[in-house]
């Protein structure tokens, strides 16, 4: 475990040098949080509660989601794809550390950084402008942290698969963006899934993307307790395993192809 911990720690440390970008990003998250909150409030002005969520839930949800965006990386990354394209992937594969494990550790290093510096500011501003609902018990906070950690893994699994397309097509930005726009929508980034009509909500909940934003945000709101909460975490864990496992399989196939064909 030691090398993975080191990778994560160093990534975290590296991130702290991008101060300006971090501030600018937190500002952007906050602005989008404010705009979404006002739109949702205009909707809730007509109805006090929708599918068991009231206006305070909805506004809180918005700021939690804005804070989580970078943590779970819903805009995608191209670092892995770039190294595949440049051929550096071959060097990476010969390192005495698991390839996917390395990048997952890197992802967790970033996630920890973003959780603090991009996650907290929108929540603070949101709480200053609106009435927000924070978890009232330590166990809810812990459940939220665990759910977020699992969400990072699910997001990583999806992003890893998207980036592996670089083995087959030259410019990975297309599939990357397409894959993430779909994920964003079905994860509840544009609007919370609890505002979806029943049939669409059912579809969204059956897919892995809800595990990336919707489920951690619901956990934050304390919507899941006891066995229900365990079920939610289990769903996230299963999706993380499925997506990451799929990534391993695809990677193995792609590598075999590269080795056989010599790049």
């Amino acid at each position: 475990m030691r090398p993975y911990w080191e990778v994560a720690r160093r990534t975290f440390h590296k991130m702290t040098t991008y101060r300006g970008a971090t501030f600018a990003g937190a500002f952007t998250n906050t602005v989008f949080g404010l705009l979404s909150a006002y739109i949702l409030l205009a909707v809730y002005a007509q109805r006090p509660s929708i599918n068991g969520y009231d206006a305070v839930d909805a506004v809180t949800f918005t700021f939690v989601v804005q804070g989580l965006l970078m943590v779970v990386s819903v805009f995608g990354d191209t670092e892995i794809a770039d190294r595949i394209k440049s051929g550096d992937v071959v060097i990476d594969l010969y390192r005495p550390i698991d390839y996917q494990g390395y990048w997952l550790a890197e992802r967790y290093g970033k996630a920890a950084f973003y959780a603090i510096f991009r996650g907290i500011p929108p929540l603070i501003v949101g709480a200053l402008v609106f009435d927000l609902r924070f978890p009232t018990s330590v166990s809810t906070w812990l459940a939220f942290l665990l759910s977020t950690a699992l969400a990072v893994a699910v997001g990583f699994g999806w992003g890893f698969l998207l980036q592996l397309t670089a083995f087959w097509i030259l410019d990975v930005r297309g599939p990357n963006q397409l894959g993430w726009v779909i994920a964003q929508f079905l994860a509840g980034m544009f609007i919370p899934l609890f505002l979806f009509p029943a049939w669409l909500m059912a579809i969204a909940r059956a897919l892995p993307f809800a595990s990336i934003l919707q489920l951690p945000a619901e956990t934050f709101l304390g919507k899941h307790e006891g066995a229900d909460l365990v079920g939610v975490l289990a769903i996230q864990a299963v999706w993380a395993i499925v997506l990451i496992g799929a990534g391993r399989l695809v990677l193995a196939r792609a590598v075999r192809r590269v080795v056989v064909q010599g790049g």
Binding site: D171, P175, L178
Partner: peptide, 21 residues
């Protein structure tokens, strides 16, 4: 980069489609 071009075009269309949805 034809494949990527069309996928990107599709994703751009999808973004504004999502806004409408």
């Amino acid at each position: 980069y034809r494949t990527s071009f069309f996928l990107y075009l599709a994703s751009q269309t999808l973004i504004s489609f999502a806004d409408m949805v």
